[in-house]
Design a protein around this nucleic acid. Structure first.
Length: 492
RNA sequence: GGGCCGUUAGCUCAGCUGGUAGAGCAGCUGACUCUUAAUCAGCGGGUCGGAGGUUCGAAUCCUCCACGGCUCACCA
């Protein structure tokens, strides 16, 4: 990027002038002893008299974000990771070093040594006794009131967004806290965290289109994983009874406010439990995280207030459909079902079977109303090739999806551990694949082999972490909770 | 992929039915030792997203393209 403009040239000139008098503004060594937020809170109530007597000297480092020049005195604001504090430079204190302030720009990173005092307007300020260039900024920052608004620039140059939009920085701090809380909760419940392959020879564990890559030395194609599920279940076979993995999945599909091609997923598996157990466990997990990160169970999201107080609503998928007026008498009559759905404006492009039609009806007529946390229970077996069938109704599986604010946040089921049933389900998926269903599951012979050694009965769940963070930070787009969302290249 | 909207100075934005580009902030020069949207005086800064077209004349109208946003479709 060879772009130059007057502003950059002026800064390059200052850099050159500094170097000519023997100052390399990238070569500074400085270890701060205070963070701005600690100074501000420690002396929050200290009077100017007290500060005058105590002569408290601090060392802080950070970025200059405002400069006000008065000739023989200069005010500035310095921002570090925690907050920002005012600096006061005086010619009669800094003497010849005061001239260096002419080379200082908004955006520069400096280290400062000085005394804490209060200005006439009562603002805690550092009277600078000495300062050091730590990094010269060559590009101008966005202006101070409007900041950086342009969404494209905010995503492409997130570093600038983070410098000038403090609320953006807060979101990612919160994201980190959420993930830490999840890990702590699972570890308190005797789970261990594992890492399974991200490069799969057979992409499995979800219905989705994978990314394809190639390993040169092995001479084979590999797929970026669409889910870790089948590997985590192999670990159940191996004897781990509580495992989780919290990391990226990759799906070669559309990008939207709810989809990024790489996204973060929590999957966890627990032996000797079923999906009913997981509903309560999920309520506990969410309330633990919400209490720790937000300090409340009532969280604002868009125009709604989501109440995470358990127990959450539970409804059978089919009952939800009947509640919307679907006549029970037509659910096994594909033609009648199609007509009923079409009459209500449901789009049915790929719905070529009864379960898929039901799924479409559900998405269009039920999901939008699922604002408060709701477990939707028991799905048609065809939609869930890795879940255990219901004992009393083999057309359905023991599965729930958790919806909050009309979004699917979690998906869980009692895991299918019957190798013969699993093999048949895979064969059915292969059939669908041969009929053109690009996203049907692949046969995974090694996974069948693992099940043949015996997998304990278990329950497993996946939680979309990005969507969870969206919910907890009141963010309308997934790009607001992913530091570097995927975009098309800038230059063609 | 479809529809709608957007792209003008480093940033935030004006720019009417077509007449050759503006403001604020930021920057530069100068004044100013308690300001905080500092103030005052002066100055510089543009491939108007790109390419074609219409026109005497295009930031403005038309076409195509690129990128982005929202939305629908697709999709956990």
């Amino acid at each position: 990027m060879e772009e130059t403009n007057v502003l950059i040239e002026q800064r390059l000139k200052k850099l050159d002038e500094l170097r000519r008098i023997g100052i390399d503004p990238y070569d500074g060594q400085f270890i701060p002893d205070s963070r701005t937020i600690d100074i501000l809170s420690k002396f929050k109530d200290a009077s100017q008299e007290f500060l005058e007597n105590e002569k408290i000297t601090v060392k802080v480092a950070g970025r200059i974000i405002a400069l006000r020049d008065f000739g023989k005195a200069v005010f500035a604001h310095l921002q570090d990771y925690t907050s920002k504090i005012q600096l006061y430079f005086r010619k009669d204190i800094l003497n010849e070093k005061f001239l260096l302030i002419k080379k200082l720009d908004i955006g520069d990173i400096i280290g400062v040594v000085g005394k804490v005092f209060r200005t006439k307007t009562n603002e805690l300020t550092i009277e600078v006794a000495d300062f050091l260039f730590l990094s010269k900024s060559l590009r101008p920052l966005p202006e101070k009131w409007h900041g950086l608004r342009d969404i494209e620039t905010r995503y492409r140059q997130r570093y600038v967004d983070l410098i000038v939009n403090p609320q953006v920085k807060e979101i990612f701090i919160k994201r980190s806290a959420i993930i830490k809380a999840i890990r702590d909760f699972l570890e308190q419940n005797d789970f261990i965290e594992v890492e399974t392959p991200m490069m799969h020879q057979i992409p499995g564990g979800a219905t989705a289109k994978p990314f394809l890559t190639h390993h040169n030395a092995l001479g084979i194609d590999l797929y970026l994983r669409i889910a870790p599920e089948l590997y985590l279940k192999r670990l159940l076979v191996g004897g781990y009874e509580r495992v989780f993995e919290l990391n990226k999945n990759f799906r070669n599909e559309g990008i939207s406010t709810r989809h990024n091609p790489e996204f973060t997923m929590l999957e966890f598996y627990i032996a000797y439990r079923d999906y009913i157990f997981l509903m309560t466990f999920t309520e506990e997990l969410f309330t633990y995280v919400a209490n720790r990160v937000l300090g409340t169970l009532k969280i604002p999201y868009g125009e709604h207030v989501i109440d995470l107080t358990p127990p959450w609503k539970r409804i059978y998928m089919m009952d939800a459909l009947y509640e919307r007026g679907l006549p029970e008498s037509i659910v096994s009559d594909q033609k009648a079902l199609l007509k009923w759905a079409k009459d209500r404006g449901v789009t049915l492009e790929n719905a070529n079977s009864i379960p898929k039609i039901l799924d479409e009806i559900f998405k269009e007529l039920v999901e939008p109303d699922l604002i408060q946390p709701t477990f939707v229970i028991d799905y048609p077996v065809e939609l869930s090739p890795l879940a255990k069938k219901k004992r009393d109704d083999p057309k359905f599986v023991e599965r729930f999806e958790l919806f909050i604010a009309s979004r699917e946040i979690a998906n869980a089921f009692s895991e299918l551990n019957d190798p013969i049933d699993q093999k048949e389900r895979f064969l059915k998926q292969l059939e669908a694949k041969s009929l053109g269903d690009e996203e049907a599951h692949w046969m995974d012979d090694d996974f069948i082999r693992a099940l043949e050694y015996g997998m304990p009965p278990a329950a497993g769940e996946g939680i979309g972490i990005d969507r969870l963070v969206m919910l907890f930070t009141n963010s309308p787009s997934i790009r607001d909770v992913i530091l570097f969302p995927q975009l098309k290249p800038e230059q063609p």
